[in-house]
Design a protein around this nucleic acid. Structure first.
Length: 430
RNA sequence: UCCUCAGUAGCUCAAUGGCAGAGCAUCCGGCUGUUAACCGGAGGGUUGUAGGUUCGAGUCCUACCUGAGGAGCCA
């Protein structure tokens, strides 16, 4: 019997197992709040309603002790969830010692303390709500691709080389050679797309960036669709459909969790297709007209992204950046070859880039030239050139950072709350 | 890598260069409807580390350590 199902058992005797979230005492009356992962419910224990030794055991119980209770469910207008449990029996499974009480009390705590106790902090209401929404988002992503005919083909985590830059890689020993933790599954997704047509990979990615901002983790999860014969327009359309689907699913199924997080739901309800499309040229004009100081030819900084995304009530797609500031594999715009056929999707409310994608170069000679220009070693990605030797076709795809999407939809201050155990530059514990 | 800020009780924070404190948590007592319950009492400190200035340093100075916020870079 789970707390979440309590409404269907009004008037009935049930057994609940879980943890003691809080215990209020009022003479011969105890008010334990029990949580079991599915929800929270307040119990009412009258001294005369249960055996004396069980009442005493409950009375001295510390926060987060594990226990089993038997009682009768009763609808009560005073209860936040609408129901209370009249307790008849209590069995303590493990009592938390008074010498070492549970550290996360129902009071305020600093972020440093909470991060050190992340393994326990997960039990609190906010993290629980965030993790349930994260779960819903990932489920929605998989359902979306499944319904659209995509085949999952996951990329390796141990890789022989970088696909964008070499400075941000985690190096690991691989027997007698060096390997790196993947920064992106894209190159492998391209190979899979040539086999399966429409494919995606979804897994952890790693960047040894010395970034220390609310938008950065060194280990984060990314979903990367890749589609044969797709143009930049196809990539943009796929991205807006995916994001709309995900937001809609969370609104449909996770209202209670959004309420716990005090998320402004109206902002999410505004997320409807089509998303505005803004060329890089226009983006520079818009940012500078709004008071920014963007120099043409450079990437958008965090402040620039905010200035631009504030102008829309839904995610904005910025396309056709100067090729010079983008990755080597991006197809140039045939009308203006100095621009890349790429797109970044910026989330509203200052949450920044959640999607980055492009049409890929399908011509082998051009690709080889770009690899040389970027001074990348060719030997580890010789296989990648094979994709342009054997039936090369135009294709494209994008990567969507899950934690940034979770952070945006949940309205979080920092992406580290969007993943169970965040990895940041100065913290790898717990 | 750079800039800024912080570190005092388990937690959140006070303390003009002059006796190291409060609330919560813990323990003891009270209360038959509490909602971060409330009321009374008790215990709890190498003020991040190492130096320095001073009659006197939690407070001022130097270095280091740990962490937080941001920049660049990125999803």
């Amino acid at each position: 019997m789970a707390v979440a199902q309590i409404a269907a058992h009004a008037g009935k005797r049930v057994r609940l197992r879980g943890w003691l979230y809080n215990l209020r005492e009022s003479g011969k009356l105890l008010f334990p709040i029990l949580r079991d992962g599915s929800g929270w419910i307040q119990g009412v224990a009258f001294k005369k309603a249960l055996p004396a030794e069980e009442f005493e055991a409950l009375r001295g119980l510390g926060q987060e002790s594990s226990l089993e209770v038997i009682g009768t469910v009763r609808a009560d207008a005073r209860a936040p969830g609408g129901f209370e449990l009249d307790i008849e029996h209590v069995t303590v499974l493990q009592a938390v010692s008074a010498d070492e009480p549970y550290p996360i009390t129902p009071k305020e705590h600093g972020i440093e303390f909470l991060l050190e106790h992340r393994h326990l902090w997960l039990r609190s209401q906010r993290p629980t709500a965030v993790l349930k929404i994260r779960h819903e988002i990932i489920k929605a992503v998989r359902d979306f691709f499944d319904a659209d005919g995509f085949v999952l083909a996951d990329a390796p985590i141990l890789t022989p080389a970088a696909c964008e830059g070499t400075s941000n890689l985690f190096e690991v020993e691989y027997f007698d050679q060096k390997a790196y933790l993947t920064q992106s599954g894209q190159l492998y997704a391209e190979a899979a797309a040539m086999a399966l047509g429409k494919t995606y990979c979804f897994g952890p990615t790693f960047r040894a960036e010395k970034s220390k901002t609310r938008r950065h983790l060194t280990e984060f999860w990314m979903v990367e669709p890749e589609v044969a014969f797709a143009t930049l327009d196809d990539v943009m359309h796929l991205a807006e459909r995916l994001v709309t689907c995900v937001v809609g699913r969370v609104l449909e199924r996770r209202r209670p969790e959004l309420a716990v997080l005090e998320r402004d739901v109206a902002k999410l309800e505004a997320i409807q297709m089509p998303f505005p499309r803004v060329s890089y040229d226009e983006a520079v004009e818009r940012v500078n007209a709004a008071g920014g100081g963007m120099v043409y030819g450079t990437d958008l900084g965090g402040a620039d992204e905010t200035l631009l995304s504030q102008q829309f009530d839904r995610p904005v797609m910025v396309h056709r950046y100067p090729a010079a500031v983008k990755a080597f594999y991006m197809q140039p715009d045939p009308e203006r070859p100095e621009l890349a056929l790429c797109v970044d999707m910026l989330a509203p409310e200052g949450y920044g880039e959640i999607v980055g994608g492009s049409q890929r170069i399908h011509d082998r000679e051009l690709l080889q030239r770009r690899i040389a220009e970027h001074k990348l070693p060719t030997e580890p990605i010789e296989w990648y050139l094979d994709l342009r030797r054997f039936g090369s076709v135009p294709h494209g795809g994008f990567g969507m950072g899950i934690e940034r999407v979770v952070g945006w939809i949940c309205g979080l201050e920092h992406v580290r709350e969007a993943i169970p155990f965040p990895r940041t530059i100065y913290r790898i514990q717990p």
